[in-house]
Structures are given as C-alpha cells and as structure tokens.
C-alpha cells in the first residue's frame, strides 16, 4: 500500500478529535492537559505531512515553534496545577467552584 497525504491527514484528524473528546469528557485536570497536548501534536503531524507532500519547508519550521511553545506552556501549566493541588488536595474539575455569581 502506498501511504499518501490523506492517510497522514486522517490520522492527524483522529488524534485531534481524540484530544478534543478527552478535554470534554475527562474530569481530571492532568488528563485534560495531556489531551490538549495531543491536539497540538495532531496539528504538528498535519503540518509535517503538508510540508513533505507540498515540498515546502515552512511547515516544518512552524512545528519547531509549536514544540517550543508547547514546552513552555507545559512548564507553566504543570506548576499551576501542582499549586492548585496543594491548596485543594484534588485535581478534579468538579472541585473548581470557588468562582461563582
């Protein structure tokens, strides 16, 4: 079988949807955060595939930027989640209720 652009794009779309489903359905903040990273990686896969099949390296450059930014985001995000866990002793979204009308 010849693996073409559409195969990569299908996998990338599936990864994106799985990530989105994870964000919507899971209740643990850490798992939600992992699903968000999955969404970013789905975009990375699509960019690299487009880059390869259109013979244009701009997409690959974009992927480097995305990976770097995602790393910075994870560093800040995990620190935040840990700080909240220390305060609340829970990482569940149902417990995030101190801000209301």
């Amino acid at each position: 079988m010849n693996v073409g652009l559409e195969h990569y794009l299908t996998v990338s779309a599936m990864l994106f949807c799985l990530g989105l489903l994870g964000v919507i359905l899971r209740r643990n903040v850490l798992v939600i955060y992992m699903s968000l990273e999955l969404m970013l990686n789905a975009a990375n896969l699509a960019l690299v595939a487009f880059s390869r099949f259109n013979e244009n390296l701009t997409g690959q450059m974009m992927v480097f930027f995305i990976i770097t930014v995602a790393a910075a985001e994870v560093a800040v995000g995990l620190a935040l989640i840990v700080a909240l866990y220390r305060k609340r002793q829970s990482a569940h979204v149902e417990d995030l209720t101190s801000l209301k009308l």
Binding site: M39, L40, A46, L47, F50, N54, G59, M62
Partner: peptide, 9 residues
Amino acid sequence: VYGIALIFG
C-alpha cells in the same frame, strides 16, 4: 494551530 496547519496545507 490546527487551523494554521489547514491553511498552510
């Protein structure tokens, strides 16, 4: 990011 990927594609 996914939107940018689609536009680029």
